[in-house]
Computed example of a mutant assay.
Amino acid sequence: MTDRFQILVNATPQQVNEKTTLAQAAVQFGAQPPYVLLLNHHFIASSQHDQITLKPNDIIEVISAIQGG
């Protein structure tokens, strides 16, 4: 059985499995490229999204680009 814990995604509580990466969480919660991610108020380069495993009570902010012309 996999343990689950709570994180915040754009100020909304969410449950994730232990060993969930930042990249997996972004997909799980519907982030659509292009976007940037902040983890606990720190910008995380996209090259690191697969390398960071989330911890209980982490705070993720998904910032999407606004397209227009």
Rank of each mutant, 00 (worst) to 15 (best):
R4C: 08
Q28M: 11
L54P: 05
D58P: 02
Q51A: 08
D58Q: 04
P34I: 10
F29N: 05
E61N: 13
A23I: 02
L8S: 01
H41G: 00
A11R: 12
K55C: 06
K55T: 14
I59H: 12
N57F: 11
N17R: 10
Q32V: 15
Q24F: 01
T21I: 02
A11H: 10
I44W: 06
S47C: 04
Q51D: 06
M1C: 03
L54H: 12
D50Q: 14
N57V: 00
H41K: 14
A45F: 01
S46F: 10
K55W: 00
H49D: 01
G69K: 08
N40H: 02
K19L: 11
N40F: 01
T12M: 03
A23S: 12
L37T: 06
D58V: 02
N17Q: 13
Q67Y: 08
V27L: 15
L54Q: 09
S47E: 14
F29W: 06
E18D: 10
A11N: 11
K55Y: 05
A26V: 07
G68R: 01
F5W: 12
V9I: 15
G69R: 11
D58C: 03
I44R: 13
G69V: 09
F5K: 08
T2Y: 03
T12Q: 11
I66T: 13
P34C: 10
L39S: 08
Q51G: 00
S46H: 06
F43A: 07
D50M: 01
E61G: 00
I52F: 07
P33Q: 15
Q48M: 08
I44D: 04
L38K: 15
I66C: 04
N10F: 03
N17W: 02
Q15S: 15
R4V: 12
K19F: 07
Q28E: 11
P33D: 13
Q32A: 13
T2S: 14
A65Y: 14
Y35H: 05
V9A: 05
N17Y: 07
F29M: 03
H49E: 06
G30C: 09
P56V: 09
A26T: 07
I59D: 15
F5Q: 11
Q24C: 03
G69W: 05
P13A: 07
A25V: 04
R4F: 14
L8K: 09
V27W: 10
P56A: 12
M1Y: 04
V16L: 05
D3F: 01
H49W: 15
V36A: 15
